[in-house]
């Protein structure tokens, strides 16, 4: 497990001290995708860089399977790898195969093992046909896929993913998500930062939300949405307008302490919408029917992780970089 305790990182200049991470405690166990979501000035990338041994913390501790990155950086580096979206992290003038071979040798992967692993990884990321093409002739998506293969060349116990799908086409991003989910199922501990909240919601079993370097909240995506008090939205489509039904809906909403929306539908009917933390679809439908209305359709939109994050902070403060 990767564990940080009361982690703090300050960046000092001659005149100022900026606190990027402030008292962060989190755990990244094997076999799970752990999300790290950030509000403005969050310190996500700084946290990942500390875990990856690229930066030293100002105070607090990091342990990777009980190893201290400050004292045993080489041993930690053998257990981890890092993939950062938006950064190439592979050599442009080398071919895909040469890149994987070189990084494999840096990790001291035995030649006999590396030979097979390079071919497996090229196949895994769909670059077998382009294996002997230099990276400078790759598309952005191909280079990113190679970067992902590079991140797996040492068969890491922990994979640190910093915005890994940034700028990727949707099908490639989907393939990457499938790969990450598979790695976690097979026992890899994954720490994921992403500003695509649907991605985090899809992959992560546990999410830490941090803001300005400090812990805000943590839990599974479902727990976060429940904790944030996010509303389900019920939409009922009525075949035709009816003052009686509209009055009944308004009364129902008033009893719940909320408002109901009424919008004309294209087919001449009307759409009633009502948001509430509880599941009120059934009672609302019964109220409509009791008032003489005819249901032409009903849908319930469950709150998303994005709703939860937006509830935790103002939308403009959500980090997108």
């Amino acid at each position: 497990m990767i564990r940080t305790d009361d982690l703090r990182k300050e960046f000092r200049t001659r005149r100022t001290t900026a606190v990027a991470v402030d008292g962060l405690t989190l755990e990244v166990p094997r076999g799970r995708v752990t999300g790290l979501l950030g509000l403005n000035g969050a310190g996500k990338t700084t946290t990942i860089k500390i875990m990856a041994t690229l930066l030293h913390q100002t105070s607090g501790t990091v342990r990777v399977d009980e190893l201290d990155p400050l004292r045993q950086p080489d041993a930690v580096r053998r257990r981890i790898n890092l993939i950062a979206g938006g950064e190439r992290m592979v050599y442009a003038r080398m071919t895909g195969r040469e890149n994987l071979w070189y990084f494999g040798r840096l990790y001291d992967v035995p030649r006999a093992v590396l030979r097979g692993r390079v071919e497996e990884l090229l196949e895994l990321v769909g670059l077998t046909a382009a294996a002997d093409t230099t990276v400078e002739r790759y598309s952005r998506g191909m280079a990113q896929r190679l970067s992902i293969a590079r991140g797996l060349v040492n068969d890491p116990a922990y994979l640190l993913l910093d915005e890994p799908t940034l700028g990727l086409d949707a099908p490639i991003a989907r393939d990457l998500r499938r790969l990450v989910a598979r790695l976690a199922r097979e026992g890899t501990g994954v720490l994921l930062t992403s500003h695509y909240l649907t991605e985090v919601e899809e992959l992560c079993g546990h999410v830490y939300v941090i803001g300005e370097g400090r812990h805000v909240t943590a839990g599974s995506p479902a727990e976060l949405t429940a904790r944030a008090g996010c509303h389900r939205t019920v939409r009922i489509r009525l075949a035709e307008r009816s003052p009686g039904v509209e009055a009944a809906v308004a009364a129902f909403a008033a009893r719940l302490g909320t408002d109901a929306g009424l919008e004309p539908a294209d087919d001449g009917g009307v759409v009633v919408s009502l948001s509430h933390p509880d599941d009120v679809a059934g009672p609302l439908a019964m109220a409509v029917v009791a008032a003489g209305g005819t249901l032409a359709g009903l849908e319930v939109a469950e709150p998303s992780l994005e709703d939860a994050i937006l509830a935790l902070a103002d939308a403009p403060r959500l980090v997108t970089a």
Binding site: A52, A75, A84, R88, M89, Y91, A92, L106, Y107
Partner: peptide
């Protein structure tokens, strides 16, 4: 070239 981080996370 954007490869320094990838190099520095290797053990040697």
């Amino acid at each position: 070239e954007g490869t320094l981080g990838a190099l520095l996370v290797t053990p040697p």
